[in-house]
């Protein structure tokens, strides 16, 4: 498999002995949109910190672009250039006094020329819609604005892979749509995307690959249809199926002779209902 990031039997436990990852093996496909789902405490955030070399697994190996990564300074530097991590809490990530300066931090660390850094900062400001905020102090921004600025800071580094830890959390519906549009744009430009997300409706619309984590283990990796349509299985790991799947099951129970697999999207559900209606 042409994996961008490949994990094989990765184990990790925190200092207090709590095991967070227990033999995780997964492949992040190049140019894909991978959703990582799992209940709170399933190990998503820990997994993300191993994806850019922040946490060093006690066992197992990680390959980036086919190359086995080590934890030496050079490898780590390469790692951070290629894998950009957007943290869940923007207040953790934003350190600078102004928006523009915060975005320039990553590119400057890559040793780019000042002109190139300025060009990238401009591009990131425009792409994330934060241009009007350029000279604002970070503490004067709203939560949604901070979120976009923290994405801009990673965007400006132009990583091959962008890993986002619950980028939609705490955002209003309009804010969520803006972030998703931005991600679509990044994906068209060739960036490999990995995102932790709780809303299965979003996963159904967005992802082309789903990885389900439970108690530090991967219990599913594959196409969204393969797991999202399985109501019982999702519920057993603390997740809620997309609403069309729920309605599909409800209608069946109510006696509508729906056929085939439960649909993931509203359009597919409508189509099935229209087909089954005359038979009733």
């Amino acid at each position: 498999m042409n994996g961008m990031l490949t994990l094989r039997d990765v184990h990790f436990a925190y200092a207090d002995g709590t095991p967070a990852l227990q033999g995780v093996s997964l492949d992040i496909p190049r140019g894909g949109k991978t959703a990582i789902v799992g209940a709170n405490g399933a190990g998503k955030s820990t997994l993300f910190l191993t994806l850019n070399g922040t946490l060093r697994p006690s066992q197992g190996e990680i390959k980036l672009d086919g190359r086995l990564m080590t934890y030496g300074r050079r490898d780590l530097e390469q790692w951070r250039r290629q894998v950009g991590l957007v943290f869940q809490d923007p207040d953790v990530q934003l350190f600078s006094a102004s928006v523009e300066q915060d975005i320039s931090f990553g590119p400057l660390n890559m040793g780019l020329t000042e002109d190139e850094v300025r060009r990238r900062v401009e591009e990131a400001l425009i792409a994330t819609g934060t241009e009007p905020l350029r000279n604002r102090p970070v503490h004067a921004l709203s939560y949604g604005q901070k979120k976009r600025v923290s994405i801009a800071g990673v965007y400006a580094m132009q990583p091959d892979v962008m890993v986002l830890d619950e980028p939609l959390a705490w955002l209003d519906p309009a804010g969520q749509q803006e972030i998703l549009a931005l991600l679509a744009q990044l994906h068209r430009a060739g960036t490999t995307l990995v995102m932790a997300v709780h809303q299965m409706d979003v996963v159904a619309d967005w992802a082309d690959m789903v990885i389900v984590l439970q108690a530090g283990q991967v219990i599913y990796q594959g196409a969204p249809q393969g797991v999202l349509a399985q109501q019982e299985r999702l519920l057993s790991v603390g997740l809620t199926p997309p609403w069309p799947v729920q309605v599909f099951h409800d209608l069946r129970l109510a006696g509508l002779p729906l056929e085939g697999e439960p649909p993931l999207t509203r359009a597919a559900l409508t189509e099935q209902i229209v087909r089954a209606w005359p038979k009733k």
Partner: peptide, 12 residues
């Protein structure tokens, strides 16, 4: 560190 911090906070 995830954004490549070494020993100085450099900004434009």
């Amino acid at each position: 560190a995830a954004r490549g911090y070494h020993d100085e906070l450099r900004v434009l």
